[in-house]
């Protein structure tokens, strides 16, 4: 464990806490894409199946369980909470997530380290995570009114994978057997998807204004 990885994990954790805070404190999920949240839940389920058969560390297991629990908690609020669900931008959040899930699954069947069920699902989760933010970005472009918590949520989520890239470089040079091409390339694509967002996020932050994405 290095500082880049730990900071990345904490940003990931905080991004989720920011959403839960927004939902619980304001009783509103306006601006949050349920599609993206459901894709992340699918990512976590497929990747953390290894909770059942392998143990890395207490830290690792606790984080995995936390990510799973919070992902489903967010979905539960957005779908079933009487007050919160009325604030969901149902008409705007129309991204067809089949267009992401299907290609990622086919790619995982074709490009993986080992053709076993858990390995293919794990690989699928890596591919899907790379693009899972797209419905959220599309929703933010459609709804011109982006609140600060939503903007910070996406920024934390983008920052997390960017720090993982630094962590991978560090590990490559410090650990003998460390090579993970699938994760590296996916992580680079995942971070690149945020480039545009970060550009406008920085501008808004510098000028102390509310974030606005050009339509």
């Amino acid at each position: 464990m290095n500082l880049f990885r730990l900071t990345g994990d904490m940003m990931h954790l905080f991004s989720i806490l920011v959403i839960l805070l927004k939902i619980r404190a304001t009783k509103s999920c306006r601006g949050i894409s349920l599609k993206t949240q459901e894709l992340y839940a699918l990512v976590f389920v497929c990747r953390y199946l290894d909770l059942l058969y392998s143990f890395v560390s207490v830290y690792n297991s606790v984080m995995k369980v936390t990510f799973l629990a919070t992902a489903f908690s967010i979905i539960r609020y957005m779908r079933y909470d009487k007050v919160v669900r009325q604030t969901y931008d149902r008409e705007q959040d129309t991204f067809r997530y089949g267009f992401l899930v299907a290609p990622c699954f086919v790619l995982a069947l074709l490009i993986n380290h080992k053709f076993t069920l858990t390995e293919v699902l794990w690989t699928f989760s890596i591919y899907l995570e790379a693009v899972a933010i797209l419905p959220q970005l599309v929703l933010m472009q459609r709804t011109q009114n982006i609140d600060n918590l939503t903007a910070h949520y996406v920024a934390l989520l983008g920052g997390y994978r960017a720090l993982y890239i630094v962590n991978w470089v560090y590990r490559y040079f410090t650990e003998r057997h460390y090579k993970q091409w699938i994760v590296w390339i996916s992580g680079l694509i995942q971070t690149a998807i945020y480039a545009d967002f970060f550009y406008f996020y920085t501008i808004a932050w510098k000028s102390n204004k509310r974030l606005q994405l050009p339509a």
Partner: peptide, 10 residues
Amino acid sequence: KEEEETKDEL
């Protein structure tokens, strides 16, 4: 095997 050893990220 080496891939397994390094699969410790989240």
